[in-house]
Amino acid sequence: MDIIVILLIICGLIFFTGGTVGLLRFPDFYSRLHPAGKLDTMGSLFIMIGLALFNLHHFSMGNLLTSLKLILIVVFVFMASPTAIHAIVDAGVRAGLRPWKKGDKRR
């Protein structure tokens, strides 16, 4: 049981690392949104499922409620994160920021 939890947490940490590295490496604002918004969402999904499994180790009513709350956080993140990304993209488009094309220099 512990091994599954540790594997899930390590998967989530790898996704978080990818999100942060992408946030630092990609060339412009539109392409930075791809790793920042979505690899982080996937990473939090993995870590939350792992922690919810770990929390069910000693089964009781209170622990079950806490695990359900963890799953509720994940569901909320999955609904809220695309909306936040879309709001940021919309602000960029309205301000007239041009997307990066191949051959431009980094911003």
């Binding site: 490496r25 990609f26 979505k38 690899l39 191949k102």
Partner: peptide, 20 residues
Amino acid sequence: NLHLMYLTFHPRMMELIDPE
């Protein structure tokens, strides 16, 4: 996600991506 991770950690990432 796996495809994006491959892009992110690729050393020659700037030549692979082509936003449109």
